[in-house]
Nucleic acid binder design. Structure first.
Lengths: 223, 223
DNA sequence: GGGCAACTGACAGAATAATGTCAACAAAGC
DNA sequence: GCTTTGTTGACATTATTCTGTCAGTTGCCC
């Protein structure tokens, strides 16, 4: 077993939330106790949040390790840009802004000085903003409509005609937001990407829960 | 000299845009040609964009290497979120969206499956959007004002009173946007963070270039 | 075609890293 | 105070990687 593999497996085991003594780990991986201590040092030096308590054992918080990445300058710029977008302004969920801030700090910390961002042209920043705002354009409407139980009329890219929907939920899938809705036009549940919405009109009337058209019915159906 | 140091120095040298033969590099670093070829293989395997042309030599595109990073789940979420913000929607500068897309792909490629994003709650996505939009709130106004040469009245967090300014340029400093302007109230050039703007009113009149109040004057002054 | 220099494989010796052993010390809990 | 277990250092041994040498192939450019 190579050292890197052992470190990985070690981390997996540590993340189970329980305490592990170095002796137990050493036996499990077939190495000496001293090696385990050295491995813990290696992990800690790599920034993994492992904690050892004398007399108790080791534990680690869940964390995700990103291997070395090679980025173009534009990609780094986009990375900063995106974190700025999320981190700017403290709101109801400050943990997001905090996470963006700490991630930015992590990236800045490991970057050599010459890679630190230089001011780019206005056109760049301006376009960056527009890009960023584009995909979110309709989010507030959806958000408000779900709260208020307001029907919407939407036109979707790649789908003919207009749809009249009861928006039920918004999901975040890592890079894409989707909306789960009851589609009045089709008489069925529907699911689409919000950034594919080309036209959006809130309709005047409010809807009331009806059996078979609620979010809970959608969930039941999927079991 | 350790191998890792040599690889780093090698990359530095390759990034100067000129062609380098393996023989020249070998002599420069005091190793054999075979070692240089092996190093190139290592770099290429690490994702560094090095290109070797038979009969010519080596060259590399400028690139930034990010060492391994350990992220919390929230930080990863924020990372995806930020890239989504930038990448959503293709506009005038598709290279940004492309960079966001390729960076997302790179991250997805190196992430184990279990770390792939799961749908989060609506509240999360909604708040994320609001956070993201917050810092950009005033950007369109500034952008339009610079284009149209329109004066603005701004109130800045941490500064008393209102300022009347001629916006000249927006700069992007990695995580923060700043505006360079001629401050009419103070009669001097000014520089402030756009996310510190609390109130913003476009003024009706347009301004014309005047000697001493132009961007070029500001730049000359800084030399 | 001919020159050039990037590529690739094999293998032995050199350099480096990893590990085990031994030892001493330090906190935390009882 | 005693036990437990983490923490650190030193050193010899072992395992692994790195490197040079040699030998040959491939593709680009003139």
């Amino acid at each position: 077993m190579r050292k890197s593999d052992r470190l990985f497996a070690l981390l997996q085991r540590l993340k189970d939330g329980r305490l592990h003594t170095a002796e137990a780990l050493a036996e499990a991986f077939g190495v000496s106790v001293r090696t385990i201590y050295r491995d813990m040092g290696t992990l800690a030096a790599s920034g993994v949040p492992v904690t050892g308590t004398r007399g108790r054992g080791y534990a680690a918080e869940a964390s995700i390790t990103l291997p070395p990445l090679n980025l173009t300058e534009t990609e780094l710029e986009v990375l900063h840009l995106g974190l700025a977008a999320v981190g700017a302004g403290a709101g109801e969920l400050p943990e997001l802004a905090e996470a963006a801030e700490s991630l930015s700090a992590k990236i800045d910390a490991v970057l050599p000085e010459e890679a630190s961002p230089e001011p780019a042209s206005f056109g760049f920043a301006g376009a960056a903003y527009r890009e960023a705002a584009q995909g979110f354009r309709h989010m507030p409407v959806f958000r408000a409509a779900i709260r208020a139980r307001q029907k919407l009329r939407v036109t979707l890219k790649g789908r003919d005609g207009e749809q009249e929907i009861r928006p039920l939920e918004i999901d975040y899938w890592g890079r894409v937001w989707t909306c789960t809705a009851w589609n009045e036009t089709r008489g069925a549940f529907d699911h689409f990407r919000i950034d594919r919405v080309t036209q959006l009109t809130p309709l005047p009337g409010l809807f009331v829960d009806e059996p078979g058209k609620r979010l809970s019915d959608y969930r039941d159906r999927r079991r």
